[in-house]
Design a protein around this nucleic acid. Structure first.
Lengths: 231, 231
DNA sequence: CCTACCGATCGGTAGG
DNA sequence: CCTACCGATCGGTAGG
């Protein structure tokens, strides 16, 4: 018996306990018929790409994470890059929808400052909230896309940022935002996007590691930092 | 003649021009005796790690970039990770020295705002100026270090950031910096560090692509954005 | 979607 | 620092 070459475990006779952590996971009926295996691949890949980077994640890692064999992701995606592009496109579409919904939920009486708060708060959610693997992957791994995929992603990114432009303009016109508005936008996005590097969500226990704050706290601090008092 | 597959050019008969870009580069006497091959590896690796990422760069890429054969980098560094650590340590030491020199060059009459300007300007230089490959690599690839290497880098990083703390405190005390000072520091570093993603240095020709500004312009804009008027 | 496999490339090493 | 090489792993595919 060669211990170096892993072979599929022969099922023990009479063993009734379901094996969950080793070997090929059992498929439930739901998993088998839905066409949502593709979706599981996107979600699993997003998590791994975020934590290990695109180049640092093998397609085998991804397959294992969703309980497939090594070759099977290529039944759903023609290449590793196509899977990366799917992660980014899905993430941007979701963020864009949530941004539109948040703006639409604003009362008609809301002023520019309130619009800015909603945009910043929603952006923190895309970066740090639940299911926030997609946008960080887009921000940090876009170099791995080819020109075609990149322009698709950039179209959505442009649409996402377009909603910010009138807000920045109005803040600048009322002297609540100082300095070159284009550079201000780039730097503010930088301040927000960089939070991915240091933010640790508040845990139940009183932890004193790193920066502990709620996304509302972050939003308040960001606005205090960037905006001047209204005239 | 196959235009798709690049092959080494056969040297033309009677051609006296030295081949510089193809094949194994000739070694000059300087290169052969100095112990500075190690330094060339660090510089070359920094450039490649910045442009392609750590996982996306092979040790063969690095060897080729400095005119070595594939195994030779391991004569100077015991592993790819050790080379990455050397890039980061060298970068942090240099940035720290330049920061200390810049602060020491300040007139005794300089106020907090002036100290802040010097720190920000120096930081932009480390991120975007000449020989600025090291710090971006440190900022974006630190996850690839093991615990020991990481703590060495963090010691220098802590020293670098320590010089900012009294400046932030004084700015906050004089109400030129609003909001939680810790979060403010994290966000300001984010705004600066993110410039690596979008900054394109001004070229000689009047180019209209992307953000074109000098590092002085960036510094001015950043200070305008973050700081309130002194009381 | 799995089995079984391919060629290419990777980090790293022994010996000179 | 080069030559020559190793085992491991990679993205991807044919055939079912």
């Amino acid at each position: 018996m060669n211990l170096d070459i892993p072979e599929p475990l022969a099922p023990e006779a009479g063993s009734e306990a379901p094996r969950r952590s080793r070997g090929r996971p059992r498929k439930t009926a739901d998993e088998r018929d839905g066409g949502n295996r593709r979706q599981e691949l996107i979600t699993g890949a997003a998590r791994l790409f975020r934590t290990q980077g695109f180049a640092g994640t093998s397609t085998r890692d991804i397959a294992t994470a969703v309980g497939m064999r090594s070759g099977s992701p290529f039944y759903h995606f023609e290449s590793k890059e196509a899977l990366l592009a799917a992660v980014m496109l899905e993430g941007m579409k979701g963020a864009l929808q949530r941004q539109n919904a948040a703006l639409a939920g604003l009362p008609p009486t809301a002023d520019v400052r309130e619009r800015m708060r909603v945009l910043v708060r929603n952006h923190f959610d895309a970066l740090l909230g639940p299911d926030s693997d997609f946008i960080p992957v887009m921000l940090y791994e876009w170099r791995s896309l080819d020109a075609t995929q990149r322009s698709e992603v950039n179209r959505l990114k442009g649409e996402y940022e377009a909603a910010w432009v009138p807000v920045f303009k109005a803040l600048h016109a009322t002297h609540q935002l100082a300095g070159d508005p284009v550079l201000a936008r780039l730097m503010i996005f930088g301040a927000l996007n960089w939070s991915v590097q240091w933010y640790a969500p508040p845990s139940g226990r009183s932890a004193k590691t790193r920066a502990r704050a709620s996304l509302d706290d972050l939003t308040t601090s960001a606005l205090q930092l960037f905006l001047k008092e209204p005239a």
